[in-house]
């Protein structure tokens, strides 16, 4: 067991995948020589050479479109979109090409590509470099969406994503890159669609993913001091999400709070809440409460950005609402 930073665990997963499979190639803006804007891909060019680790021009649409063609052609491309906000330029390739190829060609091919991209505010990057847009992708049939919360999960989920026959949007919260966590020596792939119980509890289920898991755990600590036992579920993958796992926890606690950094309206939390209100109806002993960012862009000013981010106090308040 070694302590590793989140970003380094991702780099390790890329390196191990490239070592294990010559079809894995890596390309994106500044991923090769500069080693990525957050240093995640540092050293991979030296290790695997310029044919498999490539810097691209600033051409997001073509980066992703080429990944689709390469994936259909037998490679396992891992591409990076430098900030999730830039996916807007590449949406056709993601939504109309990657997501649909398998379906619209009658299952003739799959598109085994990974699109890595950082989301999240908190680093002063402003309105166009801070958004959490994962719900866009979870809404598209054909895409899988993953969002790890810690170094070990980032490693295991990325290994799975790279070997996965379907296109995977791999979302990394940029505030986590420097976070340290344990990465087991023999870390292996982690299946998609299965949540992790980050903390066991009895009174209320708090579902989160990505950096919001840490927020939820902080809130759970505060609640424990008041005698409230919160169970924190780390969703790990958003599409598919572990409906059965959430339902099992809800059946135990009968109360549900869903937390994410993305804006609350029309988000991942809305989907989870809606499903649980349906399949878990008879388990509910309180309204399902969502915690997300307010419906506004991220502001540059540090104080406004800080106020924008959903914090542990909001999560605790939401939990208390379910206990009324």
């Amino acid at each position: 067991m070694a302590e590793t930073r989140f970003g380094k665990a991702i780099g390790q997963a890329l390196a191990d995948a490239m070592r294990d499979d010559p079809d894995v190639v890596l390309f994106g803006e500044d991923v090769a020589v500069p080693g990525g804007p957050f240093g995640v891909t540092r050293g991979l060019l030296d290790a695997f050479g310029p044919e498999r680790v490539r810097d691209t021009p600033i051409s997001e649409a073509t980066i992703v479109g080429a990944a689709v063609g390469a994936a259909i052609g037998g490679l396992k491309p891992v591409v990076e979109i430098m900030f999730m906000d830039f996916c807007g330029i590449a949406m056709d390739a993601i939504v109309n090409q990657a997501a649909k190829a398998r379906f619209m060609f009658g299952g003739q091919c799959s598109v085994p590509m990974v699109l890595r991209t950082p989301h999240g505010a908190g680093v002063g990057a402003g309105p166009q470099h801070s958004q959490c847009l994962e719900a866009w992708f979870a809404h598209i049939p054909g895409l899988r969406v993953v969002c790890p919360s810690n170094a070990a999960d980032a490693y295991g989920l990325l290994r799975t994503a790279i070997d996965h026959p379907d296109p995977v949007i791999f979302v990394e919260n940029k505030s986590l890159y420097a976070a340290k966590g344990d990465l087991p020596e023999n870390a292996g792939p982690i299946p998609l669609g299965r949540l992790r119980v980050a903390r066991e509890g009895a009174d209320v289920t708090v579902v989160a993913y990505g950096a919001a898991v840490g927020t939820a755990l902080t809130a759970a600590d505060a609640l424990a001091a008041d005698g409230v036992s919160a169970e924190v579920l780390d969703l790990r993958s958003i599409q598919p999400w572990d409906e059965a796992g959430v339902l099992a926890s809800l059946a135990k606690t009968h109360r549900l709070v869903v937390v994410h950094e993305a804006v609350e309206a029309f988000g991942v939390g809305a989907e989870i809440a809606a499903r649980m209100a349906d399949v878990g109806f008879d388990e509910l002993d309180a309204p399902i409460v969502r915690v997300g960012a307010p419906f506004m862009p991220v502001a540059f000013a540090p104080n406004v950005e800080a106020a924008y981010l959903p914090g542990a106090a909001q999560v605790a308040a939401a939990v208390r609402r379910t206990l009324e």
Partner: peptide
């Protein structure tokens, strides 16, 4: 225009493989 990058990716696969 969507087929152009896909062809480029396919060419990349031809090249790498």
């Amino acid at each position: 225009g969507a087929g152009l990058p896909i062809a480029a990716g396919s060419a990349l696969a031809h090249q790498v493989r």
